[in-house]
Nucleic acid binder design. Structure first.
Length: 129
RNA sequence: AGAGAGGGCUAGAGGGCCGCACGGGAAGGAAAAUUCCGUGAGGAAAGUCCGGACUCUAUAGGGCAGACCACUGAGGAAAUCUCAGCAGGGGAGACUCUGGGAAAGUGCAACAGAGAGUAGACCGCCUAAGGUGUAUAACCGGUAAGGGUGAAACGGUGGUGUAAGAGACCACCAGCGGUCCGGGUGACCGGGCCGGCUCGGUAAACCCUGGUCAGAGCAAGGUCAAAUAAGAGGGCGCGUUGAGGGUUGCCCGCCCAAGCCUUCGGGUAGACCGCACAGAUAGAUGGCCCCCCACGACAGAAUCCGGCUUAUUGCCCUCUCUUUGC
RNA sequence: GCCAGCGUAGCUCAAUCCGGCAGAGCAACUGAUUUGUAAUCAGUAGGUUGCCAGUUCGACUCUGGCCGCUGGCU
């Protein structure tokens, strides 16, 4: 019985270890979107994506940060297939403070597709050089 | 109706789908996944301002220094805690704020002002006695009632008195000290008598009196695993003339003592316990829809309790003042 | 999470211990000098002393509470 394309278990889909974060920061690629910044590191194809969220205390109070993390996690849970094959660290910008859940989901999709395109282009450039 | 004072309660409710953390059960050799059930943020979780519990390092003793607290009674493990009271200040009032000692000593009070603490004479007032003398009143002189300065000027009012005045003297009042009586557990209150006639402010200045106090803090601390275990420079000392360490900050005294201190360089940063009838270690409470209402404010546990302070939604009760009407 | 420290002119800092007119340098502005600019000289302005209470006659200073910033401890 395979996990299937359901909307469950973001448990093993999270970056947990300090080493995991370190690897993404050091070996991954940094891209800027309109509402979110990403650190990306590709993994094996079709494997489950893993997400980490980075929010400093300067971003807001504990309530605001918790809410942001929950909304991002919810959007990620809904669209796990879309992010498949990557380790992702998300940095929300101040712009998404006012966003609702739907807006967050839309912005996350848009910015992520932009990021992957840029990433693939960068890699192709590297290969061509 | 408006303005205010005190106290209390509350912190969206119900339903559907999906999802998260922990615990328990089913099936399974075990783990993961699956499925069922239960539990799952606050009145301030916040600030870290007080006090503890707990843990480690210590602890023969003495002195000095330091920190904190301070009306009375009760509660409390304790507290910059709570309740009730007392005194003083603020307010028109409901009510509220503050709380040892200034008569043990030292210091401070800018500017202004004559004078800022046994001080003082700028303007003013006086010519009785004494001196100079131009014989008015100028000066020496006397005085501190009035003006003026200041936050504050050494009691207030009235009278006697006097050259003018002054607790110099008298009456009343305010205040101080002593003593006696009565009330109260007490802080204190009320009254009588006597005294000197007035003795200021500041202790959130030093200080005095009384009381309390070892230091650090769960990133405390403990167990396991892994890694380096290799060095280089500088300083002091090597058996009683002893470097260094411990003993609260300092001193005395005491104890240990052959290696110690410091700078650079190198390595690991995982798991479990601590840890909870919510409870993790990238850190759990969310999303969508229906519906009702006041249309949802401040805001998220990280060792745990008792308080304080600050932020903030809606409502209720009691009371005060002002205005208008009956 | 726990524990410390700091907020003064646009900037860097004094004055705070022990309360008594809030100052210096750079920067800014105006004038002089120069054909013009820089440098130089003379002058001017700029402050809720982070905020709010309290003690005091009087607070940058003392006391308490908030706000912001910085650092240390795994």
């Amino acid at each position: 019985m395979e996990p299937g394309p359901d909307e469950k278990f973001p448990v093993i889909c999270r970056l947990k270890r300090r080493n995991d974060f370190k690897r993404v920061y050091e070996k991954g690629v940094f891209t800027r979107g309109r509402a979110f910044y990403f650190h990306l590191l590709p993994r094996a194809k079709e494997s489950l994506p893993r997400i980490g969220i980075s929010l400093s205390s300067k971003w807001g109070g504990a309530i605001v940060r918790n809410r942001m993390k929950r909304l991002i996690r919810e959007a990620f849970r809904r669209d796990k297939e879309f992010f498949a094959g990557y380790d992702i660290i998300v940095h929300p910008t101040r712009r998404c403070k006012k966003f609702s859940a739907i807006e967050i989901q839309q912005a996350l999709r848009d910015d992520f597709s932009l990021a992957t395109n840029a990433f693939l282009q960068q890699r192709d450039d590297h290969v061509s050089i």
